[in-house]
Simulated assay, not measured.
Amino acid sequence: MENNNSVNFADYEFIPKLLTQIEKVIIGKRDVVKMLVAALLSGGHVLIEDVPGTGKTTLAMTLAKATSLSCRRVQFTPDVMASDITGFTMYNKESERFEYRNGLVMSNIFIADEINRTSPKTQSALLEAMEEKKVTVDGVAHKLPDPFMVIATENEFGYVGTYPLPEAQLDRFLIKLSVGYPTAEDEAMILYRRKNGDPIETVEPVCSADDITRCISAVRDTHIDAAIYKYIVDIVSATRNHPFVALGASPRASIALMRASQSVAFMDGRNYVTPEDVALMVNYVLPHRIHLTQEAKVKRVSVELVISEIMKAVRPPFKSNE
């Protein structure tokens, strides 16, 4: 490696504190909590898909409270309109001119709860916001607060009243998470902590918007060896050539894999990315970006199996000596 310096966490001491605050509420899901924070420090967006009642929205709201970032939550239903999200202009009789009224997306963290229960038109209203950190209403661009993050939750497709997210929107989520059911021991702890109230009330802010912005900048300075760049490209390119893949991952996926790998390396105290970082983040960055052929579906081939085959076929450039 050209650079093997470690991160001075004295400058970013809020990161372990942030994980601790979230785990006051989200029990036994350290990996999920870490990935959510990694996405925040990457400047990316997160899609959380799981069955109802597993804590998807609670996870998002706990992150918002622990970071002291401004937060708006929208319960997506079929009657939510695009203008509710992006904002709208209306005529002001007193000033005799049209004025922009902020939409719900004007916040640091926007929680799109059950995003797949609203119409595709409303879902698509988030595209510009997620990619360019701005919204355009009546030809005028309005910049979103910095940092900006979308955390969308959805029930697994197939539940009554759900609409599949379009590929263009799926591609804009840095990672996709699944919370999963707790173990019996963890579920008992959830009951214990909720016996006398909601544990989210005990969560305290441990950082500011400036702290997050400064950390995002530091994450992007995390060193990447030339061989790691090639490793990322080789993995993503392989998704486009697999016989069971109808639509492979785009160059946006390569960028997402790079950013996510930088973030987990940074959180592990390193300012350089290893092949292990990339291999870890593949399972969060790529699955929602890959669409299988009809033949694969008939043969019950899963996206996870395809990714596993790709990772076995693409040789890592070296092993880290941590």
Rank of each mutant, 00 (worst) to 15 (best):
E156A: 12
Y181T: 11
G248R: 04
D50C: 13
G87L: 13
R117T: 07
E276H: 09
G248W: 04
L126C: 06
L47R: 07
V314A: 05
D11T: 11
S83G: 11
A246D: 08
R30H: 15
E99G: 09
D225W: 07
H242R: 06
I307S: 01
Y12R: 12
L280D: 13
V33P: 00
R194E: 12
D79E: 11
L305V: 14
V203K: 03
I48V: 14
K24D: 08
I255M: 05
K65R: 15
I48W: 08
N271P: 00
S237I: 00
I290A: 04
S70R: 14
A238G: 01
Y284E: 08
Y284F: 15
I212M: 10
L69S: 10
N4Y: 11
F148Y: 10
D31C: 01
L41P: 00
Y181I: 10
L286V: 01
P317N: 10
V245D: 03
V219G: 01
D146E: 15
F98K: 07
K56D: 08
D268R: 15
L165Q: 08
S6C: 10
K230T: 12
A265P: 07
S124R: 08
D225K: 05
S254I: 03
F88N: 12
Y91F: 15
I175M: 15
K312D: 14
R194G: 14
H291T: 14
N196K: 13
F157Y: 14
A238Y: 03
A64F: 01
G53Q: 05
N196E: 15
D268H: 13
G43W: 01
R117H: 05
K65V: 02
P317L: 09
A296N: 09
D84V: 03
E99Q: 13
T213V: 12
K134W: 02
V314D: 09
S42G: 07
K93T: 11
E295A: 14
I212G: 06
N102R: 14
R300I: 03
A256Y: 00
F14P: 05
R194I: 03
L18A: 06
T213W: 02
E13M: 12
